[in-house]
Amino acid sequence: MKLKEIKEKLDLKVFSGESELDKEVIGGYTSDLLSDVMGHANEGQLWITLQTHKNVMGVASLKDLAGIILVKGFTPDADTVALSKSEGIPILGTEMEAFELSGKLYNLLN
């Protein structure tokens, strides 16, 4: 499913990477531990987290993730947004908690 479609169905806000929403999403990974994501997330997945700092984008880029969704109304740091634009990996957001968002995304993709 395209990221654009997920954004619309889950009513997600787009913080950065508006032009990159045609990316194909093949799954999701929910974690706030960077090494966990580094070790276990896969290319093309959406990363659900509450971490907002720049290293999150570093990990997302190294792992070729489709994008990041920040939960609970968290907003990305300015340097995270800048890196998101240069790396072409969108950051989206929601007021939902990680559990709720993960469940909805899981249902959408399966």
Binding site: L33, S35, D36
Partner: peptide, 15 residues
């Protein structure tokens, strides 16, 4: 707090 230090670094390298 940044999400590092989960005790997974060296095991990830080894794996």
């Amino acid at each position: 707090e940044m999400g590092f230090g989960a005790g997974m670094g060296l095991p990830n390298i080894s794996d």
